[in-house]
Write a protein that binds this DNA or RNA. Structure first.
Lengths: 146, 146
DNA sequence: AAATATATCTTGCAATATGCAAGTGTAATG
DNA sequence: CATTACACTTGCATATTGCAAGATATATTT
């Protein structure tokens, strides 16, 4: 039974965001699906951070339950599954890129070129549009082959 | 001994961000210090989410080690400690508010008024400046009483 | 001065999360 | 028809987390 004083991770916008981003593995899966064109279980598994299989399965189902990922059988190969970013996930791009710009400013070992932060600061919505177009391209390539 | 293949949570900007924000308690402490004017251990402790004391002590020291909080004895009362947000933490405001705006859009139980997202979308840098001024006010009030 | 209160941590321990290895079921491939 | 690829699932040892309680140090009240 749930305590009457239990805090639902809703209501406060920071708390709601923390409920989804306050987990490093969810965070990195969102990076991969939004920025690196990754769509399949094995794509995520092969990211350099080395997520383990049970954790990956758990986070994929959590992100699907949260309405961030749309799980579909790959039209090119029925034994493969694709996880497409939903509109809700796509709309995270401004915040995600904002955080990454901040990181490049403070991580002394950053691998990101200066041009990354520059491009976003100069033209935020244009930069977002560029990433969205990339997502569209990846998804279209997959779905056109059904 | 550290494995030679260990991933340092540096280099990739998303990974660096995940190293700090990929923890819900750090996330909420940053909300409190940047948006709610909280500065002391007991301020954070009394947030509605109910962080426990060991976790709070741990996260405060991690955020201090990460250069996000500046720990200082309260000039008004030597037995009290203040945690001030550093410039590095302040510069997280655009990303944090971006995430919160996203939350208000998708959390059906959001408590945030529409005006919050509207204000930020209409004038992002003005909104940030408003929050920074609030931080300045809180910090000045404390430090002027030494 | 003694008792009480406030503020900031520590410690102990149980619950939870994680990582690794191995196994399962289904579908394509040779 | 055996093999491989893919997407998980399971079991289990280890690591991390979180709650409750205790500790310490100063400040306030009586």
């Amino acid at each position: 039974m749930k305590s009457p004083n239990a805090i639902l991770w809703q209501g406060c916008p920071a708390r709601y965001a923390a409920g989804i981003f306050g987990d490093k593995w969810c965070f990195l899966i969102l990076r991969d699906v939004l920025l690196h064109g990754k769509r399949s279980y094995s794509d995520f598994l092969n990211s350099p951070e080395g997520i383990s299989t049970n954790i990956l399965a758990d986070r994929l189902s959590k992100l699907e339950a949260a309405g961030m990922l749309d799980r579909q059988v790959d039209p090119r190969k029925a034994s493969r599954v694709c996880y497409f970013p939903t509109r809700k996930a796509r709309n995270v791009l401004p915040a995600l890129i904002s955080m990454m710009v901040w990181s490049t400013q403070y991580d002394e070992h950053t691998e990101a070129p200066d041009s990354f932060a520059k491009a976003f600061k100069a033209d935020p919505s244009g930069t977002i549009a560029w990433y969205e177009a990339d997502i569209d391209r990846v998804d279209r390539d997959i779905l056109s082959q059904s």
